[in-house]
Amino acid sequence: MKEALKHIVVAGGGVAGMEAAGALAEMGFRVTLVEKNNDPGGHLGRWHALFPDRRPADEVRHYLRKRIEHRNINVITGTTVEKIRHHGHEVAVDLSGGTEERADAVIMATGFDLFDARRKEEYGYGIYDNVITSAELEDLFNNGRIVKADGKEPARVGFIHCVGSRDEKVNNNHCSKVCCVTAVKQAIEVRKMIPSCEVFCFYMDMRMYGPYYEELYRESQEVHNVNFIRGKVSEASVNINNRLVIKVEDTLAGRPLKMELDLMVLMVGMEMSAPGAKCAAASGLPAGINRFLETADHHFGNNLSSMKGVFYAGTCTAPMNITDTISHARAAVEETVRYLNRR
C-alpha cells in the first residue's frame, strides 16, 4: 500500500513561503500554502527592480510563481494562520475563518511589515503631500513616472535612511539591513529617469553588507552623481511655496543644514508582521526583544522554533534580503525533511 504523502503547512506566501513550498513539493511532500492576501508574492509584488543589479523584480516573481505551480501544492489565499498547536503526533493549524488543517510539520514564513511612517510624525508622512515611502516610490517606478502630488517632476529628491530602524523612539533598535542599499538603488533609478533631478541620501551609516552593494554605492557616486550627507534628519516642514524643508546636521561638516526638497522618500524599515506576531503569541512561540521570532540557536538552529514540528523561514526571524530569504527558506525545508524522516 502506498503511504499517504506527508503534509506540511506553510504560513505565508511571500518569497520564503513560496520557495519553501516549491522545494517541499518537488521533494514529494503535500503542501498547503496559506497566504493572507489574494495573491501570493508578498512585498516583492510591489517592487519594480531589485538591488544590487537592478534586475526586474518580475524575473524573481516569475521564478517563484513557477515554483508553486505544482500539483502537490494547494494555495489558500485571503487566509491567515491564527494558531499552531500539537494534536497527537500531528500539528493542528487553526486558520482564519474557523477551519483547521492537520499537518506533519509547519513552516512559519509570515514575513515582515513595513514600518508605518506615520509613527515618525516629525517627518510629516500623511501630513505633507510630497512625503512618500520607499515602497510608494516603487509604485511610481512601476507607473513609469516620478511625479510630485501636483503632477510635476521633482527637481530635488531626498532619501531619508533608517526611518523606523535603529530608533529607540519607535521601539525599534534593530537595523533593517536592506534600506541602505535600496536607497542607493532607488537614487540611481531616480537619477536615470530624471537626469536633471538632484538626489540626496541622508544616512547615519552606509551598511553595504552584501556582494556588489559597495560597488553599487560607488557607482551611484561615480556614474550618477548621487549626493550623500551623513546626518539623521530631525524634522520636516513646508514653506510658503509648499516645498518641503528638512533639518539635518551635516555631521561631517559639523554644522546644521537646512534643505528644500520636492520629494522626500522615507526608507521605511522592517518590523515583525502583525498577523505573524499574533499567531506566534497565540501558539506560544517566543519573540525576541526586536519582536521578530526567536530561533532556537542563532548559529546552528536558525530555522528551529521552540515547538516540535514548527520551523521558521525568512524575515519572520530577522530582516534579510531576497537572496538570504531564499537560502533561509531552503534551509528550513532541509530541517523540516530531516525532522520528518527521523519521526
Binding site: M204, R230, G231, K232, V233, S234, K247, E249, T251
Partner: peptide, 13 residues
C-alpha cells in the same frame, strides 16, 4: 552614535 539628530533640531544651534 553621532547621528546628529540633536544638532539638527537644536533651537540654540
Amino acid at each position: 552614535f553621532a547621528c546628529g539628530g540633536c544638532a539638527a533640531t537644536c533651537t540654540a544651534g
